[in-house]
Write a protein that binds this DNA or RNA. Structure first.
Length: 928
RNA sequence: GGGGGAGUGCUGGAAUUGGCAGACAGGCAGGACUUAGGAUCCUGUGCCGUAAGGCGUGGGGGUUCAACUCCCCCCUUCCCCACCA
């Protein structure tokens, strides 16, 4: 009997030994290829939950694998330590954020060490350490000096719960990313980073191996769209402003503009509102401000708005259209103003219908269908006969009359002729779709045709209809009237591209987007332009627990950066957290009042702090030279280690951290501080681990406490179970019964290695088989490691273990051969179960660490099967399996297949049409 | 509404180029050992059928000698974005 596998004892023993031996200390070794394996550092929330483990353990396995392969592996760890929870804890429990954070780090560091990770703790970075944020501030000043940081007043996202502004990326579906509260808008003067300058570069992901999903998310976030900026004239108003500029992707619909809409926040609103509308407009603007983003952006909310009394001129047709404000127009996108084309935009259509604004169709429907409802008693006798004779598609209406559907020009022409003959005096009829024609018959039986091609025509048509039919008296527009007729509804509005109609000089143009833009550019009324969804990165935070923005305001000199020699601008220890909604620093007069570095006169410090995301935008650079004092990083060491070879972490950072870190890298590159443009060569997102159908997260609490499992079963078992649970990118569900399977396996390995092996015989076939299976396993495990397919990697090792267990029973190979395979198994298992394999390695008599061994190589010739199982199919159905030597010829294989008894019964009475042979795989006999 | 995934036994999952569906585990059933078992070991386990055999990768079509894999349509589900002009 061997002694029992005692994991907790072993974990401690080896972790201590590795630390004492500085086994995982790394330096810039030019003799080895480098490998920078980075895992997203955790926020200092207090405890590592199982989700952290799922992020850290597999990446550690991979880093260990690269290390065994002979790479010089940098696998660092640190802490994202600034942020709201620390401050909230301070407010709630009276603990200083620094104390709270450092206590959490203490605990988390202990947990990380208990995992048996290879982090070089000498390289640890903590973002709230003054020695770290000194450089965060240094970067801030660099960005300022390169015009990438600026101060601006704008409506900002405000979280009423956190009492802090948020960057756009931190607003998820109108809610705060941290506390889930609904976000509102506030006007504040804030610091912003000009990330939009890099919009195009951020959309490109050249030469980096990132998941397609993440690349798409980032591209969508940047949201580049090509369009046209068009100027609408205000000259006639006699105000200083001469134009309203709009951004549109549909310049081809310009002749259909029947109103304009400004965002309520648009500065033009105050200037253009006429005195009689002032009260109403101000009420609406105030209401918009009160609304949360959620309420405002809700697509369910009925569109509403207010006419501000002003009119703008569509320069292409000279029409004056009313200017409205509505909260569905966003100040932050495009120009904060839109031209409304109700005939070809869903929102504009609903808005126009609601407020009785005319609707003029200007794009032909692509299906070429026009409709006409021949109203009851408006047509002379015999009209239906003509419809029938003419082969028209029509149905009689219940209320009388006929619904006629017209296909194509010829039919429409024919119908118009019919109309002119059969329309009774003092009546009207219409064709809706394309063309849009109204036929009015006077007393003298003369027919007048009016097309719905302008606002003037629209007014005229409506007037005449009302005169003829009292029932439409209440309709404010022609389309409102037509909309009452169900039959017409699908003709009244569409968003498809098509030939331009009712468009003056540009009529019949089929590429209206291009044509109109070219025309506008020629006239100087507009130009092709690009609009982005992404906004500049707002980084001011009205909070204490962050790096102070290193800026000083001087009445004489304006905004002056703190001199480098004064960095870091330290957070004062004392802080009064009772002032809600403003930085506590604002009330620390001793700290605020300082000297202007330029003129020496009185100056005041900026009291907002820097968004924590800035701290995490460059931490991977600091790991390369954590003690460097002359700059944020040592350029020589950056040259050695960067860029990161593989970066792993949760997908939730797709458009926050990862976008910011890329922006930062590109900015540093353009400043000439680094020589690469992308920080992370390969990105991998692990899935989420769940337990009992509950998502593991900070907010929902973690059901599974990893510490308990580590104490009971050992770090190796927890690590191995995480590898085995499923594909890493997919995540999976934590089952206690599942972990016991892995625990049993490691116990079996323990016993397999330590229990005496007793050779019974030395059989050459058995030896060859052992060799083959060992080499096949090396190949499989290596391939799976490279693809980060840890679940099948573990399965392969389990298979090898099972095979070796059976072999042990028979004792069919020599002790030397046995030992060789056992050692291979241990090295292959070492990244996954570092403690147990180290113990076993030493017990086998080695005095070097297993983690300094070489990853085994496989020999393709030895891994090759000698015999293969040939599958025999008849008409694609499996009928037999026959064992044949690898070297079998095609003819022999086909003959053997035909000779099989099981196959013969299926060939009886049938004619063999052909025989397919796939070498090494199968024979398929096709019969009829 | 737009974009991106996913769907395989009782469960987690496997199947690298179209070529034996269900590796490896869990669970369950039976057995061995044991004072005892939440320990260990062995055997069985996709479904229907006594069997021969048939059926089977969300559903329906298609391509092919051969489809979890490729193409078309549909259903379900998860994630991201969403009044973006």
């Amino acid at each position: 009997m061997v002694d029992k596998y005692n994991p907790s004892e072993m974990d401690k023993k080896w972790q201590q030994k590795w630390a004492d031996d500085k086994l995982y200390m790394v330096t810039e070794d030019q003799a080895k290829p480098k490998w920078y394996a980075l895992t997203m550092f955790p926020y200092t929330s207090g405890d590592l939950h199982i989700g952290h483990w799922y992020a850290m353990a597999p990446s550690d396995v991979y880093a260990r694998y690269k290390r065994l392969q002979g790479y010089n592996v940098l696998h660092p760890m640190g802490f994202d330590a600034f942020g709201l929870p620390a401050e909230n804890a301070a407010i709630k429990r009276g603990i200083h954020p620094y104390k709270w954070t450092m206590a959490n780090i203490e605990n988390m560091r202990r947990q990380l060490k208990s995992m048996g990770t290879i982090y070089d703790w000498d390289r640890e970075v903590i973002t709230c350490d003054p020695e770290y944020y000194k450089w965060t501030q240094w970067f801030f000043i660099k960005l300022f000096q390169h015009d990438l940081a600026y101060r601006g007043k704008a409506p900002v996202n405000w979280c009423p719960q956190c009492q802090v502004v948020l960057a756009n990326e931190q607003v998820i579906a109108g809610k705060c990313w941290r506390c889930d509260s609904e976000v509102i808008k506030r006007d504040l003067e804030q610091w912003l980073f000009r990330i939009t300058k890099y919009a195009d570069e951020l959309m490109e992901h050249n030469d980096i191996a990132w998941p397609e999903r993440i690349k798409i998310m980032q591209r969508n976030w940047v949201g580049k769209s090509y369009g046209t900026e068009i100027s609408f004239a205000l000259e006639h108003l006699g105000v200083a402003e001469k134009e309203i500029r709009v951004f549109t992707t549909r310049p081809d619909t310009i002749f259909g503009v029947t109103f304009m809409v400004l965002a309520p926040e648009n500065p033009l609103v105050a200037k253009l509102t006429t005195p009689d509308k002032k009260a109403e407009v101000e009420t609406y603007v105030a209401r918009t401000r009160r609304f949360t983003e959620i309420e405002r952006l809700s697509t369910e909310k009925e569109k509403d708005g207010v006419f501000i009394g002003a009119y703008a001129t569509n320069r292409l047709n000279g029409e004056k259209v009313p200017v409205w404000i509505a909260d569905y127009v966003l100040q932050s996108y495009g120009t904060g103003a839109v031209m409304a084309v109700p005939a070809h935009d869903e929102r504009d259509f609903a808005f126009a219908l609601k407020y009785g604004i005319p609707i003029i169709p200007v794009i032909e429907p692509t299906d070429g269908i026009a409709k006409s409802f021949a109203f009851p008693d408006t047509m002379r006798e015999g009209f239906e006969e003509e419809l029938k004779k003419g082969g028209f598609e029509y149905t009689p209406a219940k209320i009388g009359g006929w619904y006629v559907t017209l296909h194509g020009e010829a039919q429409i022409e024919k119908y118009i002729r019919l109309m002119k003959v059969y329309l009774r005096p003092d009546n009207w009829n219409d064709i809706i779709g394309s063309p849009w024609l109204f036929f009015f018959s006077g007393k003298d039986n003369k027919i007048e045709t009016i097309a719905l091609d302008s606002i003037v025509a629209e007014r005229e048509i409506l007037k005449r209809c009302k005169k003829i039919e009292p029932n439409v008296r209440n309709c404010r527009t022609v389309v409102e009237m037509l909309n009452n007729c169900e039959f017409y509804r699908d003709r009244l509005f569409h968003t498809e591209y098509g030939a331009m109609i009712h468009s003056g000089q540009l009529n019949r143009n089929t590429d209206g987007v291009k044509a109109v833009t070219a025309y506008l550019e020629q006239k100087g009324w507009g130009k092709g332009t690009i609009s982005y969804r992404m906004r500049d990165w707002l980084i001011s935070r009205q909070r204490y627990w962050g790096a102070p923005i290193p800026m000083i305001y001087c009445n004489k000199c304006g905004i002056v950066p703190a001199p480098e020699k004064d960095l870091p601008v330290r957070l004062p220890e004392e802080a009064d957290f009772s002032h809600k909604g403003e930085s506590p620093l604002k009330y620390n007069e001793k700290w605020v009042n300082t000297k202007c570095p330029k003129c020496g006169g009185p100056g005041k410090r900026e009291t907002d702090t820097i968004d924590g995301f800035m701290c995490s935008s460059w931490y991977f650079l600091r790991y390369c030279s954590p003690d460097y004092a002359r700059a944020a990083f040592d350029p020589e060491k950056i040259k050695y280690w960067m860029p990161v070879d593989i970066y792993t972490g949760g997908a939730e950072h797709a458009v926050m951290h990862l976008l910011y870190a890329r922006f930062f890298t590109k900015a540093l590159h353009d400043m000439g501080l680094i020589n690469f443009g992308e920080p992370f060569t390969k990105l991998f997102n692990q899935g989420t681990i769940i337990a009992e159908h509950e998502k593991m997260s900070k907010s929902k609490g973690n059901v599974v406490n990893p510490d308990e499992y580590v104490n009971e079963l050992g770090a190796d078992t927890v690590r191995a179970y995480m590898m085995f649970i499923g594909p890493w990118e997919q995540g999976g569900e934590w089952f206690d019964t599942g972990i016991s399977g892995v625990s049993r396996w490691l116990n079996r390995v323990w016993n397999l290695v330590l229990e005496d092996y007793q050779p019974q015989s030395a059989d050459e076939n058995a030896r060859r088989e052992l060799e083959r299976i060992t080499h096949q396993t090396i190949k499989k495990v290596t391939g799976d490691m490279d693809r980060l397919r840890f679940n099948t990697m573990v399965a392969a090792l389990m298979e090898l273990t099972n095979y070796l267990s059976r072999l042990k029973e028979s004792g069919a190979v020599s002790a030397t051969n046995w030992r060789s395979s056992i050692e291979t198994l241990l090295v292959l298992l070492a990244p996954t179960a570092p403690h147990m394999t180290e113990e076993l390695w030493h017990r086998l008599g080695h005095n070097q660490s297993i983690h300094n061994q070489h990853w085994p190589k496989w020999d393709e010739a030895l891994a090759k099967e000698e015999e293969i199982t040939l599958v025999v199919q008849v008409n694609g159905k499996l009928r037999d399996r026959i064992s044949v030597p690898v070297s079998i010829t095609e003819d022999d294989a086909k003959q053997l297949a035909r000779d099989s008894e099981k196959v013969k019964t299926h060939l009886e009475g049938k004619q063999v049409v052909k025989v397919i042979y796939v070498p090494g795989k199968l024979v398929n006999i096709v019969v009829r």
